[in-house]
Amino acid sequence: MSTATFRPSDAQQWHSARVDNATTARRVARARARSIKTEAKDRLLRLALSMVDLTTLEGADSPGRVRALCRKAVQPFAEMPELPHVAAVCVYPTMVPWAGQALGADSPVKIASVATGFPSGLTPLPIKLEEVQRTVGLGADEIDMVIDRGAFLSGDDQRVFEEIAAIKEACGGATLKVILETGELGTLDHVAAASRLAIAAGADFIKTSTGKIKPAATMEVGLVMLEAIREHFLATGRAVGMKPAGGIRTAKSALHWLVLVAETLGSDWMTPERFRFGASSLVGDLLHQIARRTDGHYASPRRFSVD
């Protein structure tokens, strides 16, 4: 794919997408009111598990912690080996080799890494590009980049666009997820415009948040992003993925997200190829609920590992 070029007329279109907050909230409330029971719940809990990007993004991360994370990613719960593995582990760049070592060469679990001066994104572009290239070189299958929110909020769409396009090129074959950090964008109109910008610039996935800022992945924001993906798909046929990240801790909220995805984008997005949850503690609650469905009663939450 050739690098996307910025056109001011496109930017005008991104910003002409309008969102009404009150009705968006009503739509989300309706998705939350869906009642997911028995077989449907079994199926969707397992699907959600297979969509998790199991994440650790802390200053104190170490090879040991990453090894533990990878073990869990491959087999979330040893008592139930039939459960799916998660989609990916998500780590800082220096942790990528350790993850590669722990997962092995042919692992179905992908390695995602945040790059581009995560979480603020306020490093110069050449350094961001260098960081991305090196991280891919170290074995990352997926790059989670952050946009320059300051540039976006000051109206410099071109700069944001060109950074994304350049980073996409630097990714080579790696999948690019573009983090909008919606908690800093302030309005749903901004989220709508930033989503369209990121998609036009070449994002393979758009992602809500770094997890470092609150609010993170609200469902209202998610709906607006899913709608942007839908528009682009209907106009061009290119299917962009979605990754909410930050604040999704319960199985119930994961199921509500899946309702929103199914009802906005349809069954083709109900797959880890196109939808991910950026989360860590979510896996514990998913396992808790899956075991509840199999055993017929709730186990102690301590039955499931914390990390």
Binding site: R34, E39, A262, G266, S267
Partner: peptide, 17 residues
């Protein structure tokens, strides 16, 4: 040839009376 979304049947749900 237009891209279409597979919405109908995308979310099979069990009865929730």
């Amino acid at each position: 040839s237009d891209p279409t979304l597979k919405l109908r049947g995308a979310l099979p749900l069990a009865p929730a009376p």
